[in-house]
């Protein structure tokens, strides 16, 4: 039986074809294109003096958006970032660092350093003082 290609049918096939092209073709779109207005995906690695660290916090300054480094010290920032955005890298016991995204930034390599201080501590007390001379 011969299929007649009516104009309705033609339109239907074309629509399906167009749909198929867009639906099954993975779109990497904006990522890694520095000129894009929507921003770019930033990856990086955070280390201390002895190597990459797990659990460092990387956040976009003044927001709640962020990510935590994995056991290799790596992170991929979950949202696209623009030039001029500031990432804050922090880890308990270390000095917090800020990193400004430049035009050319795609991968960040950062070393954070320990806070320099000595732990001390005197707890307060409500225990009534007793002088030695009053015996």
């Amino acid at each position: 039986m011969k299929i007649q290609l009516t104009s309705t049918r033609k339109l239907w096939y074309t629509t399906m074809l167009v749909f198929a092209i867009f639906a099954f073709n993975p779109m990497f779109g904006q990522s890694n294109t520095t000129t894009s207005q929507k921003g770019k995906t930033i990856k990086g690695i955070v280390s201390n003096e002895s190597g990459p660290i797990l659990g460092a916090n990387v956040i976009l300054k003044d927001t709640n958006m962020g990510v935590v480094t994995n056991e290799k010290g790596e992170f991929t920032f979950p949202t696209a970032l623009k030039t001029g955005d500031v990432l804050v890298i922090s880890f308990i016991g270390y000095k917090t660092k800020e990193f400004k995204i430049k035009d050319t930034t795609t991968f960040i390599k950062l070393t954070i350093y320990e806070e320099v201080f000595e732990f001390t501590g005197a707890p307060n007390s409500n225990k009534r003082y007793k002088s030695k001379r009053n015996n």
Partner: peptide, 21 residues
């Protein structure tokens, strides 16, 4: 300092410098 930060992170316990930090 190392044990103090670990304790602070895991158990929320510290000495004065930990509070101030």
């Amino acid at each position: 300092k190392k044990t103090a930060f670990k304790k602070l992170l895991k158990k929320n316990r510290t000495v004065c410098t930990g509070y101030a930090y």
